[in-house]
């Protein structure tokens, strides 16, 4: 389908979103990612039964942690996208990209740039 989406997106492949760990997401922010989103199967259609529901909980938990330490929780999101739904994939990428653009660079990066050790 080759639908265009913003070039700010980099994909890390997991067998199931159920494999995602809070550590992975927090580490991405610590290293300076401006946003993270987890793209899994639609709810109720998880290839591994219910991994996506667990991932959703972890994303929500990570969002709370981010809020607590002063990083906007909106920088993390969970999406359900059917494997055949290219248009939705591109739409989600745009949506996330625009949200992050509105938020600006991650506060972590700002701190890092100021020379505080990460």
């Amino acid at each position: 389908m080759r639908l265009t989406y913003p070039d700010s997106i980099r994909i890390i492949r997991l067998p199931c979103t159920g494999k995602i760990d809070v550590i992975h997401m927090m580490e991405a922010f610590r290293k300076g990612a401006d946003g993270v989103y987890v793209a899994g199967c639609l709810e109720g259609e998880c290839h591994y039964l219910a991994g996506n529901l667990r991932a959703k909980k972890k994303v929500e938990y990570t969002r709370k942690l981010l809020d607590e330490i002063g990083i906007e929780g909106e920088r993390i999101e969970m999406y359900g996208i059917a494997a055949s739904d290219g248009p939705r994939f591109a739409e989600v990428a745009k949506e996330m990209h625009e949200k992050i653009m509105d938020l600006g660079p991650s506060p972590v990066k700002r701190v890092v740039r100021k020379g505080v050790p990460s």
Partner: peptide, 18 residues
Amino acid sequence: CGVCAAECPAKAIDLLHF
């Protein structure tokens, strides 16, 4: 699927290749 690895609080489980 790796769900156990993600859930394990002691990080005692790893999903090979991931």
